[in-house]
Computed example of a mutant assay.
Amino acid sequence: MTRQRASRAEDDDEAERRGSVLLPRLDISPLRQVVRRLLAALAVLWVTVLLVWLDREGYVDDVDDHVSFLDCVYYTTVTLSTTGYGDIAPGSDSARLVNALVITPLRVLFLIILIGTTLEALTDRTRQQWRLNRWRSALRDHTVVVGFGTKGRSAIQTLLSTGLTRDRVVVIDPHPQAVKAANAEGFAGVEGDGTRSQVLVRAEVQRAKQIVIAPQRDDTSVLVTLTARQLNPRIRIVAAVREEENAPLLRQSGADQVITSASAAGRLLGLAMLSPNASSVIEDLIQQGSGLDLKERPVTKAEAGRSPRECADLVVSVVRGHRILPFDDPEAATLQLTDRLVVIHHASRPSPETEERRGEFR
């Protein structure tokens, strides 16, 4: 019975640990922590010595009726350590007032610094809970990434290159090493199975703007998609699958976009064999932030009513409603203000919509 209770308690602790949110934190070496505490303790010590030295006339020494600087250091050390031999004591009203209002709080601070390791262990969970509550209250319209493998990391790097900040990304992964790696890079992480609604809720999927699903298995992608869509009907879901035959199932499950990783890599390999330069251009287009970028943007007011060929960027397609029209489609000959454009844009040049906003601001 005792073994069963111990095993059940270990299982509960493991489940609680695996479902918890880990926020990024600055790791400090133990030696550095000890040095910092010693310096803080010495600072408190010498501040107290200075206070006693400046008011030395108000102290009484039973040995020679004279308080020297060494006596001040001696009195400070025995006072802050709460030893208190009593051979040197405050005699005047000002000295007693300084002891009551200043030196006593410094004594408490000195003791706190000395036992800081113990207090830190006792208060670490409370501090973490306070950080977690503050993080939850401020988290809105963020991005959740399920799977911190090669695909998940690459997706995050692409999003960061477009202006997304690290504090707006939450990583979910069942492996503790992956979550620690995400923390080391500045992302909040949840260790757990993304198919479980409890894990997704801890990542605040119900308030997220978008979710990237990139696990190792296609069936996991389907289950995560179903769970995420149930928790947040308005969330944008982009999922990756290995096998192309599973892509329709993911779309039926609620994914807005499905990327087939295996076939996409195979097509790039084939293109590299047939046309090496073309494959280099494709690689540059999908790598955001450098060289040429393939991006989607709205039609600006200056572009409305014009032809796609008159745009500053090279227009590849025109998105009108739920249809994607090629740039040479007769229906896309005249751009509408409600259209969106898929364009090839140079990363070093400001986008037309940015220049339009600057013009309105001026």
Rank of each mutant, 00 (worst) to 15 (best):
M1H: 10
T2V: 10
R3W: 14
R8Q: 10
A9E: 14
D11E: 15
A15Y: 08
R17F: 11
L22T: 15
L26M: 06
D27L: 10
P30E: 02
V35M: 12
R37K: 08
L38M: 09
A41Y: 01
T48W: 12
V52N: 07
V60N: 01
V60F: 11
D61C: 12
H66S: 09
H66A: 14
Y74T: 11
Y74C: 03
Y85K: 05
Y85C: 01
D87K: 14
P90Q: 03
G91Q: 04
D93F: 05
D93P: 01
S94P: 00
R107D: 02
L109F: 01
F110R: 04
L111F: 05
I113H: 00
T117V: 10
T118E: 00
A121G: 06
T123V: 05
A138K: 13
A138F: 06
H142W: 01
H142V: 04
K151I: 14
R153M: 13
R153V: 15
I156E: 00
L159K: 02
T162Y: 06
T162R: 10
L164Y: 07
V170A: 13
V171Q: 09
P176L: 03
K180R: 15
A184M: 10
G189E: 05
E191D: 05
E191G: 08
D193W: 03
G194C: 04
T195D: 04
S197H: 04
I211K: 00
Q216W: 00
D218I: 01
V222C: 01
L223H: 09
R234T: 05
A240S: 12
E245G: 07
N246Q: 08
N246L: 11
D256H: 15
A262C: 00
R267I: 14
L269Y: 12
A272E: 13
M273A: 13
M273G: 13
N277D: 14
V281L: 14
V281E: 09
E283V: 03
D284V: 02
D284T: 09
Q287P: 05
G291N: 08
G291M: 05
D293R: 01
R297A: 13
V299R: 13
T300K: 09
T300H: 07
K301C: 08
E303L: 05
A304D: 05
P308W: 13
R309K: 14
R309E: 13
E310I: 00
E310D: 15
C311V: 11
C311I: 02
A312C: 06
A312Y: 11
D313W: 08
D313Y: 04
R320S: 11
R323F: 01
A333P: 01
T334V: 15
Q336Y: 05
P350A: 00
E353Q: 10
R357T: 14
R357Q: 15
R362E: 14
